[in-house]
Amino acid sequence: MGVIKLKNIKVYAYHGCLVEEKKIGSDYRVDLKIKADLTTSATSDRLADTVDYVHLNHIVKQEMAIRSKLLEHAAERILKRILEEITMVQKATVAVAKINPPIGGNVEMVTIIRSKKR
């Protein structure tokens, strides 16, 4: 088994329950961790034998571009697509963080973390 991590994927999106969030958007940070059997790719040195992190990044960016009221919903879509599209992935964990959330205080970010496995 092996692990692939994508850290600090930066996106601008329009998630949230407030009308203002729908109109002006916000900065987000996404961290992704997947577990897969990387034994074959470790010896073959072939992209076809591993989980392509370019594909993972593409999924994150596409799903974050679809508006959700809740970060949990965006995270669920990301996890679902990863498991549907990349059969090598046995487990995926995603953290979606809203930078400077509008919650009436000095809060750097709010993060939700979700995991799914086969």
Rank of each mutant, 00 (worst) to 15 (best):
I103Q: 11
L83F: 10
T43D: 08
A42T: 11
A36N: 03
E85I: 14
I34W: 00
A13W: 03
E76V: 09
K35I: 07
V30A: 04
K69E: 04
E84C: 09
V89Y: 03
V51L: 07
G25Q: 11
Y14P: 03
K69P: 01
I66Y: 08
K91S: 09
V3S: 15
L56Q: 04
I78Y: 00
A36I: 10
E108Y: 05
K5G: 10
S68G: 07
T39V: 12
I24R: 05
T50I: 11
V30T: 05
D45N: 15
I34M: 00
T43G: 02
I113S: 00
I24Y: 13
I59Y: 05
M109P: 00
G16L: 07
S41V: 11
E84F: 09
K35H: 01
C17D: 06
T111S: 06
V107L: 10
P101Q: 01
L18S: 10
Q90N: 02
R29P: 05
I9R: 05
E85P: 00
L83W: 15
H58Q: 06
V110S: 15
N8M: 08
V107H: 02
D27C: 02
R67N: 11
N106F: 13
Y28S: 07
Y12N: 10
L6H: 06
Y14T: 13
K116E: 07
R46Y: 02
V96S: 03
I4L: 13
G16Q: 00
V94I: 13
M64V: 15
E72K: 05
A13H: 05
K80I: 08
A48Y: 02
N106K: 11
Q62G: 10
A36L: 11
D27W: 02
L18Y: 14
L70R: 13
G25H: 01
I4S: 06
R67W: 05
I9F: 14
D52W: 13
H58P: 07
R118G: 01
A97C: 15
I112M: 02
S115V: 12
K33T: 15
K23T: 15
G104D: 06
L18T: 04
M64E: 03
V11A: 08
I24S: 02
V110Y: 04
S115R: 06
G2D: 10
A13C: 08
Y14D: 10
L56K: 01
A74W: 04
I112H: 05
D31C: 13
A74M: 01
I34L: 00
H55C: 11
L56P: 09
H58F: 09
N106Y: 11
E20F: 14
E21Y: 12
L38M: 14
D45G: 08
D27N: 15
K116P: 01
E85S: 14
D49E: 10
I24V: 15
V51W: 02
V51S: 05
R67Y: 03
H55P: 03
E108N: 04
R77W: 10
K98N: 05
T93F: 02
D52C: 12
S115P: 01
M64H: 10
I34C: 03
I112P: 08
E72G: 09
R46D: 13
T111H: 00
V110W: 07
V110T: 07
P102Q: 10
R81K: 13
Y12C: 03
K35F: 07
D52Y: 08
I9M: 03
H58A: 13
E85G: 14
A36H: 11
H15P: 03
